[in-house]
Every structure is written in C-alpha cells, then in structure tokens.
Design a protein around this nucleic acid. Structure first.
Lengths: 138, 138
DNA sequence: GCATAATACTTGCAAATTGCAAGTAAAAAC
DNA sequence: GTTTTTACTTGCAATTTGCAAGTATTATGC
C-alpha cells in the first residue's frame, strides 16, 4: 500500500500530493482521452514513461482510489485499469491543462477537440466523464 | 535562463513540463488567493518550501513567462513578483485543483470561497484573474 | 557612522527519486 | 513444448529534493 504524506490542509496542496508530478496526469489523460486501460498501452504513449515509474504510479493511483485494477475479460495474464468516480473527477483538471498548454506552449492537438473545449467546456467535460464511466462497466 | 525539455507535443504533457511538480502551483496559489508577491512571503506558507527550491521555481516561472520580477516600490532590497497573462491563465487550473482536493481529500477551506466556486465558477475565476491583473499594475 | 536586522538568495551535502537497461514470471499462442 | 505476450521487478547511475548553514545587499536604530 502506497502511503502519501500530506503537507498541509490546503486543497491545492493535498491535490498536488496525489497528482503533482510529471507522469500521473498523463496516465489519466490516456485513460480519458485515448481509452487506454492496460500497462502495455500506457507504455506506448509519446512521452515514453519508464516501466518502473508506470508501475509505481499505477500503484499510487490504485491505493488513492482513483482507479481499480482487475484481471482482463479476455486474458488472465492481462490487467484492466478503470477510473473510479474520484478518478473521473480529474477530467476538469485535465481539460484546464489542455487549454493552458494549447494556448501557451507549442503543441499539436485535434482541432475538433480544442474547438469543443473552447465553446462548450462543461458539456465536453461531461461527455468524457460519461464515456469513462461507461468503460468502467464494460 | 532555465531551459525546459518538452517530452511531446501533447498540451497536457507540455503543461506538465512547466507546472507538473509539487511546488510550482503552490507559488501561483499564494499569488492568486493570498496576494503574496515576495520571496519572504512565499517561504511562510504552511507547506514550508525549502529556500533553494523556491528560488529555483521562481526562476523557472520567470523564464517561462508566467511572472515578472521587479524591485519593490518601497525597498531596493526587496523584489516583487507579479503574474503575467500567461500566469493569470493558470487560475482555472488552480480552481480545479481546489475543487478536487476539497471533494476528495481531508482539507480545510474557506466555506465562502468553496461555495462561490461551486455555484459560480466562471465568475469567481474571472474575479481572481482580474484581481491578479490589478495587482500587477500596482 | 556604525552595528544590527531584514531580505533574498547560494552552497554543501545526504537522502530520495528518476531514468535506463536488463531480468523475471505467469499465461497464451503456435 | 517452445516461443511470445503481458506485466512487472531489480540494479545502478544520474538527477532532484530537502535540510542547514553561509553570503551579499539594503534598511534600520542608536
């Protein structure tokens, strides 16, 4: 069980204690926007996460209740990671990171998604949250 | 000049390259919600940031154009840090961290601010952004 | 005008974390 | 029954963090 030290009672600080590093939110991004759910899929993202870091972060996210781990339906040698409601609730955070990065950094992003986020943020957030919930039932 | 490596062209990833650590967003939080502007003030927050980390992060934030550094109006031995528009644009990110932390972690937060964020998020974001812009002119 | 305090860092070093490469183990495919 | 797939674990060097102490410039008090 991965323990976690909380530095203060401030909600920004406690959120950062869980999510504040270079990799954790990328895993959640891959689940929400790319529909990924397995260790092997997470390893294939453009940022090339090291295998030990991925294993560590998945363990933290599971211990903190943002995702669940279960044996895959098709193969016993495979695990499927799914978002809990606590994990689904990080979608608004991911969206704000997308909007900030798209505005202020050199990035490449699907223009359709960006336009959707800029004009109908709340509905788009809700759409991806609903999609994640439905995957969790599958 | 603090350089920064970008791991990919994904906007979440590039945002994390700048903001993805345990301390950076706490500095921005202190500027936006506590009106702090000096090195000494940042050191006094509940999370007890080490002096070298603070100096490093302020340099990164300045190099990345999220804040500006200037000699204080009252004392030549003091510096005043202010948010640029790029910095002001992180307020929605901070707000989502507040809401997630307040919902899912044990935290203490001003009930007035929380209620305001829950019922009138956009207006509250705009209010704190405007406040930060006005401080930058002072 | 000189000692003390305030302000903003910098430096040194041990401990923790990260990143890379290679190795392991169970299940699946051929 | 050998090879491949899948999910890790391990070892180790390099980087980052965290703590304590030191430095440098400006301001204050007598």
């Amino acid at each position: 069980m991965k323990e976690l030290k909380h530095r203060s009672t401030c909600p920004v600080s406690t959120s950062l204690d869980v999510l504040g590093d270079r990799w954790t939110l990328l895993i959640l991004r891959d689940m929400v926007f790319a529909g990924k759910s397995t260790y092997g899929q997470f390893l294939q993202s453009a940022e090339k996460m090291a295998t030990n870091i991925l294993a560590d972060r998945l363990a933290v996210l599971e211990a903190q209740g943002l995702l669940t781990k279960a044996v895959a339906a098709d193969k016993k040698s495979k695990f499927t990671y799914r978002l809990t409601e606590k994990g689904v609730d990080t979608v608004p955070i991911l969206v704000e990171f997308i909007l900030w990065g798209a505005k202020h950094c050199p990035t490449i992003i699907d223009p359709g998604l960006l336009a959707e986020l800029q004009t109908e943020k709340d509905a788009t957030v809700a759409k991806y949250q609903q999609r994640a919930r439905e995957q969790a039932l599958a």
